[in-house]
Design a binder for these strands. Structure first.
Length: 803
RNA sequence: GCCGGUGUGAUGGAAUUGGCAGACGUGCCAGACUCAAAAUCUGGUGGUGGCGACACCGUACCGGUUCGAUCCCGGUCACCGGCACCA
């Protein structure tokens, strides 16, 4: 038998699958549909990472199996190609981003093909294609039309290195997601998408989908809903104005001894001329503005602030006058930017009160407020109408009722999630299709004019004043107002990278449609993505954004489902051989193409799924890769011990049925490592048996096919089996033949193993117990003692308890 | 600080309605083939004691429930991830 030439064979089958179109999904087929989605890559110049291989191999195996099980499978791929790395590369080399992108996409496509992924390449999409981003702009305009887009001057996250405004999601941990520089707060005019309006819908939607529990939880935490109340405090010294605060504990209102405003609070500016110590306050505010986000969070323990002389609050429930401070432990971006402080029952307020010598009044019994704030439950005291109530829930409800009656407050909710800062001062993104008209204000570009194309420019550097490169292109900027026809200017900022990826899964359903983002019948046929796999890093960003866009599209009648993804899973990282996260600087990066060249795509695919629990991080191991190579070589070698026979032989029948059951179930549960282990066990059994027949080889090769499709197709063809495995059928198992006729069970005395017994699988309890007691070892252990209890766990063990 | 997760041989990891701990792979040891090496094949491989059949111990640590705990409960420690002065 000839040796297996993986290079030639893998190329051969990749070409044949492509030529015969075996992975093309069929719109409207009567077969059951399965839509498996993987996160499309950003086509970087560096080429694919082993992480991509692992991320795609999971659903790749599931898709190949489902096709064999008679499903109409949509397993598409595309490229999320707008973004900063490409633009920065263009700036460095002087190449146009369009050219860079085309080059990188070609490179990625070649690499993806060489791994043998069964994508439907007739549906490939590119977010930078104008036929694609036309619809990204279209959705933006629909949001604009529906009041979900607004412009506001606000403090935003700004990356001084990338010279770009970032959303909250893009600056997690206070660092720029692209260059990891420290993010600073800067006042700027910003386009926002009103995602907070969808906060409740996003929370509700989570109850209808099948995401891994930690994924759901992370989203819930990110949205960060809290319930409480808004309370209005009259301000003495103002023009009869009220200071509005948000609290989750309105029941502690009688314990308020001061109030705090964020340094940026507008009321300070409004009454600047009446505040006698305005100089001190101005100095404090300056100091706060200098602190980076990082410093503000690191200095948690130290509380700083300045009392506002000239303004004081009036507690609405007891009329007491209380001081107001400005302090940076209160943020302008959450709630109303002002709080009521209850030092007895909030540790931050407690620390501040200690620092500034403010009264601490206990209103909930149960703690020791001479030491620290008490945040637990207990009986209400010193609290007027609430006195005597002894649980949080009732006291809060009672207080809200009281506030609403008196007209000085009401129940309210708050979210940690903020509106989505949506514009970027960069070239390589979708132009925002808005025109600024001196008379009409912000005007939408008419739908007929989409796509609003990116103009061809020579310079991609952002302006030093933080302006987009597009601002320098007069022919782009100057235009007529679509409403009044007068001279107007185009918006020159572009959309963030997350725009194109917020709806791409819809485009796969109908990628070449020029009339709509996708035809209604196709949206209805494919429905929800049945299974979406990707990285945990996208859970509080891409996943939130796209669920928001999808739900909006549902609300305006464009898509038939509320939620885009029925099921979501996530793969674990592949770490470097040293156990650290792979990074260029550490020099521990594995290039998947090196593995393909040295061992073949089948080995790479099998290894990334065999290396450990799919959902957990695992280090790369070169010698384990060789182990997978050995396994596939042994598979090829099965042909040498092949004998005729079209039914499973008695020697292997049970082993094969068991393996079919295990592999079939494990693949669906993403337990790829144990599925492959079961196949390794089976091949060991086969070699121990010394031979296998055609039926057995067919079963083995079919089970292995989703993992290692090239070598299995080659064996199938070499043995003259009919058709292609890619078009073949999955194998079924016979449940009756998954159990051995005789089994080995354990005999315990007092829970300790004393013997092993061979019994018939269907032996009765009495029989087995009698057999156990007859055993020499067991008999020795129980002789002369009283039997307290006897039990038989069918198929597992017997246990005799003696005294 | 809050939320979540994890902890098993030399090593990646198996095993869950509570029932033989360590499947499968790697590494290592021994043997076969070879002038030799690589590759391949065969056997062994949790620890301690014993020539030995065997005994005892063992799933981060302490305790509990149970005939029986890697699994359930209470507490402790370590590591990983997310959020973080969120009122």
């Amino acid at each position: 038998m000839k040796n297996y030439d993986f290079k030639a064979t893998e190329a051969k089958w990749q070409k044949r699958w492509e030529d015969e179109g075996v992975f093309h999904a069929e719109d409207g087929s009567s077969k059951p549909k399965f839509y498996g989605l993987v996160e499309f890559p950003y086509p970087s110049g560096a080429g694919m990472h082993v992480g991509h291989i692992k991320a795609y191999s999971g659903l790749e195996v599931i898709s190949r199996k489902r096709r064999m099980q008679g499903y109409n499978v949509l397993f598409p791929i595309g490229f999320d190609a707008f973004g900063l790395p490409t633009e920065n590369y263009a700036i460095k080399t002087g190449m146009h981003p369009r050219k860079v992108t085309d080059m990188n996409i070609k490179h990625f496509s070649d690499q993806l093909h060489s791994v043998g992924f069964s994508f439907d390449w007739t549906r490939v999409i590119d977010t930078t294609d104008e036929d694609y981003y036309k619809w990204t702009q279209w959705i933006f305009l629909k949001m604009f039309e529906n009041g979900l887009v607004f412009r506001d001057k606000a403090l935003v996250n700004y990356c001084p290195h990338c010279k770009v405004v970032l959303s909250n999601e893009d600056s997690q941990g206070g660092h720029c997601d692209i260059c990891h520089s420290e993010v600073v707060q800067k006042a700027k005019d910003v386009w926002y998408l009103r995602i907070t309006e969808y906060a409740d819908k996003l929370l509700e939607g989570l109850e209808t989908v099948d995401y891994l529990p930690n994924i759901k939880l992370q989203q819930v935490n990110w949205i960060g809903k809290s319930t409480g109340a808004f309370v209005n405090f009259k301000v003495k010294g103002s023009d009869d104005e009220e200071l509005r605060i948000y609290t989750t504990r309105p029941d502690t209102l009688y314990g308020v001894t001061f109030m705090v405003m964020a340094p940026e609070h507008p009321m300070i500016d409004k009454y600047a001329d009446r505040i006698s110590n305005m100089d001190a306050i101005t100095a404090y505010r300056k100091e706060c503005a200098k602190k980076t986000e990082f410093e503000r969070t690191q200095l948690v323990k130290e509380k700083t602030g300045v009392r506002i002389e000239g303004l004081s609050g009036i507690n609405p429930v007891d009329g007491k006058e209380i001081p107001i401070y400005v302090a940076d432990y209160v943020m302008m971006g959450y709630g109303t930017g002002a709080i009521m402080a209850v030092p007895a029952h909030d540790q931050r307020d407690y620390d501040f009160a200690k620092e500034f010598g403010i009264d601490i009044i206990e209103v909930i019994k149960g703690g020791d407020i001479s030491k620290e704030a008490y945040t637990g439950d207990g009986e209400m005291v010193n609290s007027g109408v609430l006195n005597g109530i002894n649980n949080k829930k009732d006291s809060i409800a009672k207080m809200i009722e009281y506030l609403e009656e008196k007209g000085c407050g009401e129940a309210g909710v708050q979210y940690k999630m903020k509106d989505w800062a949506f514009n970027r001062q960069r070239y390589w993104g979708e132009p925002i299709p808005i025109v600024h008209c001196p008379t009409c204000g912000m005007v939408a570009v008419p739908y007929e004019e989409l796509p609003l194309r990116l103009p061809v420019v020579e310079q991609f550097e952002p302006g030093s004043d933080g302006e987009s490169p597009l601002a320098k292109i007069d022919s782009f900027v100057n235009c007529k107002c679509p409403k009044c026809g007068g001279d107007a200017r185009r918006e020159t900022d572009t959309m963030p990278q997350w725009a194109g990826s917020s709806w791409y899964y819809l485009r796969y359903m109908d990628p070449h449609n020029n009339e709509a983002l996708a035809a209604r019948d196709k949206l209805e046929y494919w429905g929800q993505v049945d299974w979406y796999n990707g990285g945990m890093e996208h859970v509080t960003r891409h996943m939130i954004y796209s669920r928001f866009w999808h739900r909006f599209l549902y609300d305006i009648g464009v898509v038939p489902t509320k939620e885009p993804y029925a099921k979501r899973t996530a793969q674990g990282l592949i770490l470097g051989p040293d156990g650290d996260k792979m990074s260029k600087s550490k020099g521990n990066v594995i290039d998947p193409m090196d593995v393909v060249n040295e061992y073949g795509a089948d080995v790479l695919r099998t290894y990334v799924l065999f290396m450990g629990d799919y959902e957990k991080a695992a280090p790369w191991s070169e010698s384990s890769v060789k182990g997978c190579k050995r396994f596939l070589d042994r598979t090829w070698g099965l042909q040498e011990i092949l004998v005729p026979g079209d039914e499973y032989s008695p020697e292997l029948e049970v082993a094969i049925n068991k393996t079919i059951k295990k592999v079939t179930e494990d693949i669906e549960g993403m337990k790829f490592n144990t599925a492959i282990a079961a196949l390794m066990t089976l091949i060991n059994d086969i070699y121990d048996n010394g031979k296998l027949n055609n039926a057995e080889l067919k079963a083995f090769v079919t089970l292995l096919y989703p993992f290692a499709p090239h070598i299995t197709e080659e064996i199938w063809e070499a043995q003259g089996f009919s058709g292609m495995l890619a078009n073949g059928n999955w194998v079924d198992f016979d449940a009756d033949k998954c159990v051995d006729a005789t089994i080995e069970i354990v005999a315990q005395v007092n829970g300790k193993i004393r013997a092993k017994l061979n019994i018939a699988a269907d032996a009765a309890s009495d029989e087995v117990l009698a057999l156990a007691k007859a055993d020499e070892k067991v008999a020795a252990e129980i002789s002369g003692k009283t039997i307290v209890k006897e039990l038989y766990v069918p198929g597992r063990l017997v246990n005799i308890v003696v005294k």
